[in-house]
Write a protein that binds this DNA or RNA. Structure first.
Lengths: 343, 343
DNA sequence: GAAAACAGTGAAAAGCTTTTCACACAATCT
DNA sequence: AGATTGTGTGAAAAGCTTTTCACTGTTTTC
């Protein structure tokens, strides 16, 4: 099925069509369009003119058949509906530039058989490289196949130190969060963490703990409280913490859902957020954070930046410069209404 | 950069390598691997064996150079962080099958210049077809280029009736929602709608209105209340409706955020949800719906099914069978805690 | 026993582009 | 004038696979 457009030229014109129309050989067309070859300026202009009028675009399949590079990259995610892999993908797409490199998207749905299958398919399409986007920050096993192309792991690092990984700096985020509360004169701080089987949960706690220890403080109740990633857990945990220390003046939360549960419970129980008790979330999950009462101050993981970095590292690796190891992306604090200086 | 794996075979073996190793010609290898050609069974077995040991996978670039079909499809979304385009993409990927067809993902970020650019890039990659995923249900202008490949519009339909579009049946969804409340003996029902500039908002209201009219009912306050898509609007609107009719026993909402605002406000004001007042959302946006108190009953748009349909229609179109027009996907009711029969 | 059918294999073309090499012709130098 | 340099162009190969056609032998048919 070939639709002919207004000018009568098929949109899938090949270089031969251009050559015929210009009355020159195929190789002259190629050179005329490429700049940097010796072609009579007049010929070049005429060829370019005709190529344009024919809507000629070189067939990248054929180009790459010749160059050995396809200008395509595989993006293998394990969880498309995850809130984390999408921004990472966007950042990567961004860094690859408009049209320069195209991205094959595959979703393995957490199934390693499926993953293998996708990898093979991508390999048969001769992608130049692969980005594997995880759905949690826990390290994952590297791809088992020996691959002829470079691979970058994003969000979830590879468990092998010889691979290239880009992750969010969760320890630093924990520090950043704690310092934010400490700097607004809070000294009775509780930590309501997420699921302890997640590396993200424990890393954030570790960072925050380090900051408190540096100020000779400790968490309300002596240590962080682990639970789940839900609002309900936040509601229950904050009430428990208040029963331990009724003068608690700050709460750090493992994510925004927990934080939302916390501010909901506090509002119901008549506490003044942020003046009496400041609450800080994590993830900057807009739809939850902005709709909370008050809107949540939180930590943003800069996931798009993470994706961009992953893409850049992949480029370098494709060019032969493999920067192995785990690269961390700094988080940033988003100030909304749930934190403030103490009154 | 070519990594040699354990067996000593490069993973990028070509058909020539296989031919050399098997001591036959290239064409024999091709035929032996293809089934359906006349090849000596012994030769065939030997070739297959060797191809396997060399990890030979045919170069799809070269294959498609020959066949004219690339087995790739472009997926152009306008809003990757949108909650709607992702499930549609997943469904499409699903229907395209594992490895059979690969998907190029592009994000135009709502910018038509960018969109054009992506379309050109995809064209130069000779994709077999294009799916355009919108970020709202409002009809959009069709791509301005005359394309040599078929296009399917998903979620947001094309404004041209000659195109192929797949959308969610919002009118039907409104009916479904209203009937759910009516069938649980509610007869004083309010409708808190979203932003009236969105077709989705007005269509849902239209469907619900039709169902009420059929029962000789009308909405509390006479008609639906339009506002925004936020929780805050839900909170404000439901309090207003109660001031109009303090015996209101059901509330239909334009989306789950509104519904969540509604149940929050009702809980704060001491109403019993779902017994005294049932509340129904829309979108089945899990993270909001499941965390509400009580969890929200809602309408699911079957977006993955929508994506699958889009993919199937694209296949048909690629095979020359263009089913033009707008195809609707039925919604389904998800029953959680916020609706029940009246006590 | 000669002609026809058949089985198995290989050579070659096609698909599109890029790049190298060679050629023809004009212009410059000795 | 003959040799050299330079300029613009085209032919051809390479990259990988599929498919058609042609070519040996072998087997069957009349």
């Amino acid at each position: 099925m070939t639709i002919i457009n207004d000018s009568g030229a098929s949109l899938t014109a090949t270089i031969r069509d251009v050559a015929a129309a210009a009355g020159v050989s195929v190789s002259t067309v190629s050179k005329a369009l490429s700049d940097g070859y010796r072609v009579n300026p007049e010929t070049r202009a005429r060829v370019k003119e005709i190529a344009k009028s024919l809507h000629f675009t070189p067939n990248r399949q054929a180009q790459s058949l010749h160059s050995g590079r396809t200008g395509t990259v595989g993006l293998l995610t394990s969880d498309l509906d995850g809130r984390f892999s999408i921004p990472v993908m966007m950042g990567a797409e961004d860094a690859f530039g408009l049209g320069e490199v195209s991205v094959f998207l595959c979703d393995a749905r957490g199934d390693s058989i499926r993953e293998q299958h996708h990898v093979r398919a991508l390999l048969s399409r001769r992608v130049d490289g692969l980005i594997i986007v995880g759905d949690s920050t826990n390290p994952r096993d590297p791809l088992s196949l020996a691959l002829p192309i470079p691979v970058v792991y994003a969000y979830a690092p590879s468990s092998s130190p010889d691979d290239i990984s880009v992750i969010s700096d969760n320890v630093g985020a924990g520090r950043q969060a704690a310092e934010h509360l400490i700097s607004s004169q809070r000294d009775r701080i509780g930590y309501i963490a997420g699921d302890p089987t997640f590396r993200a949960a424990t890393d954030r706690v570790a960072g925050a703990t380090a900051s408190l220890v540096a100020q000779e403080l400790e968490f309300v109740g002596g240590s962080a409280l682990y639970g789940g990633w839900t609002e309900e857990w936040g509601r229950n945990a904050v009430r428990h913490l208040l029963s331990v220390d009724s003068l608690m003046d700050g709460v750090l939360c493992g994510n925004d859902a927990i934080a939302r549960g916390v501010v909901d419970a506090l509002r119901e129980d008549g506490y003044d957020v942020p003046r009496a008790i400041s609450v800080l979330g994590h993830d900057n999950w807009e739809l939850i954070a902005t709709q909370a009462r008050p809107p949540l101050s939180t930590i943003d993981m800069n996931l798009e930046e993470l994706g961009r970095n992953a893409a850049r590292l992949l480029f370098r690796a494709i060019d032969g410069d493999r920067a192995i190891g785990t690269h961390e992306v700094k988080t940033r604090l988003i100030h909304r209404g749930s934190t403030s200086p103490k009154y």
